[in-house]
Simulated scan of single mutants.
Amino acid sequence: MVATKDSSVLALESDTGNTLSSSVVRPKKPSRALFMQIFGGQGGSGRGYTVSDGVGINNVNLDDAILLLCAEKAVYVYSLLHVVEGTKKVHYKKKFHSSSCCWASTFCTPNDGLILLFSDGKIQIR
């Protein structure tokens, strides 16, 4: 998975670098992408795919996995299967109205969480 500067997301084949779909998933109002992470999809049956997360290679069940994309103006959650197919179907979107996000990261406790830092100095934990 690749997130481009304008928050577009596309799936690339790891060996050749070719796109898996002719369509790119992009928001209506693009803003600079800050952070992207894939959650879930480990094990189980269904359509499988192998992805690299920068640390190693993992087998991902596309039917269960989601992709979190944080951009300056909003947070998006897509089905990983839809991104691979090139289908723009947002499962969740949260726009930032008061200030732009300038940094994002996830953390793991008993539940996964998201930390957002905004240009006005505010921090949100979701």
Rank of each mutant, 00 (worst) to 15 (best):
S99Y: 06
K73R: 12
T106G: 04
M1C: 06
S52Q: 07
M1F: 13
G121I: 00
G41V: 01
Y78Q: 11
V55K: 04
Q37N: 08
V24P: 01
V2W: 12
V9H: 02
Q37V: 14
D15Y: 10
T87S: 12
T19M: 09
S45E: 15
E13F: 13
R32E: 15
I57D: 07
H82K: 10
G54Q: 05
R26K: 15
T106P: 03
L10M: 11
S100T: 07
N58G: 00
A71G: 10
D112E: 08
S105K: 13
T106W: 04
C101R: 03
H91D: 14
V51T: 10
V75H: 02
F107C: 07
Y78T: 10
N111G: 01
K95N: 15
G40S: 05
C101D: 02
N111L: 12
G121P: 04
D64R: 09
T50R: 13
S105N: 10
A65S: 08
S14F: 12
I125M: 14
W103M: 15
S119M: 11
R32A: 10
N18I: 04
Q124H: 15
A104S: 14
F39H: 13
D64I: 00
T50M: 09
C102N: 08
T4R: 01
T16K: 10
I57W: 03
G44C: 02
I115W: 04
L12A: 05
D63P: 02
K89I: 03
N111M: 05
Y78W: 12
I123L: 15
Q124M: 14
A33S: 14
Y49T: 13
K73W: 10
Q37Y: 09
L117I: 12
K88V: 08
S22V: 09
T16A: 07
E85W: 01
K93V: 04
S14K: 12
C101P: 02
K95D: 15
T19P: 07
I38T: 14
C108M: 06
L10A: 04
L34W: 13
L34A: 07
G121C: 05
S105M: 07
A71K: 06
D6E: 15
V25R: 03
Y92I: 03
K28S: 14
S105I: 02
L81Y: 06
S31G: 04
E72K: 12
V55I: 11
A71S: 15
C70G: 08
